[in-house]
Amino acid sequence: MNTVYLIVIASSLFFLIVVIGMTAKNKLTDQYAFMWLTFSIIGVVLAFALPYLNDFARAIGISYLPSLIFLLAFLVVLSLLIYHTHLLSKQEHRIKTLVQDVAFLQREIQEVRKEDSRS
């Protein structure tokens, strides 16, 4: 067991603890909390499985394991980004509708107040 191996396991565990902590304190909404919990557990499992991964990489013809990990990590991060942009767009659309509704309500309140002061 070498140092790098230990560092990888330690950081994956640290990440898992951070996610659990944030979930416990309600800093993540349920669906995202679950997503990150899944990711961090996969991370821990992969960290422990590192030696076997090396064999696996060699078996499929990748001589340098980190490049496989980087590729996978990159794909995961990319899909997360797209997912988040999608969520952001959805939120923006909802906020736009709410802002418009608030503006309509404010106008109606003003009109009602005007009528009240007249009568």
Partner: peptide
Amino acid sequence: SHVTLPVNLGIGGAVQTGYRYAER
């Protein structure tokens, strides 16, 4: 006669507010 959006929505959101008003 006016409707004031509490935050800036940009031209598209502003004009659409007008159309929603017209629809209402």
